[in-house]
Amino acid sequence: MIEVRFHGRGGQGSVVASRILANAFVRENKFGSAFPMFGFERRGAPVTAYGRFDDEPVLEKTQIYYPDCLIVLDSSQRDSPRVYEGLKPNGILILNSTMGPKDPHENLALVAMADATRIAVEEIGLPAPNTGMLGVFAAATGWIKLASILAGLEDYFDGSRLEGNRRCVQRGFEETKSMRL
């Protein structure tokens, strides 16, 4: 089972990103679950979301304490110790930035980055880095096919927004800069 923890802020689309990823895994005949943990809903508040992906049905409905992978949509949290809590050895960081963490966590093996916010502003006119980050996730981990994420988008967007988000995922995938540690 792959356990992924999302760290973002309200309005960045972390929750939707976690759901699109679960959707993509299900499209590959696998199982996935995703759920957010937040207090009162408001824009700008820190948001944590959890994603579990497996070949077998996912039974746990708890928070993730030992993630395999972190998706950090809010680059201001990149050096926050809270974000790296419980990260497993050989951990992966998917970061919405052009700049990696100052002092990478000891369990980090791979840091993959793209400026997903800029991509989103250019493609959909909104600072919503969520879909671009999924492109980075697909490129860096190889756990999911790019095509599955692209297909999954249509359950969450339509019209020009769908097209724009497809371009975000595609560009996130292509513009990924990976760094082995």
Binding site: V15, S18, R19, A22, N23, V26, F31, G32, S33, A34, F35, P36, M37, P57, V58, K61, T62
Partner: peptide, 9 residues
């Protein structure tokens, strides 16, 4: 929360 907002297949 643990089920109301949990998305799965």
């Amino acid at each position: 929360f643990y089920l109301s907002y949990l998305a799965e297949k």
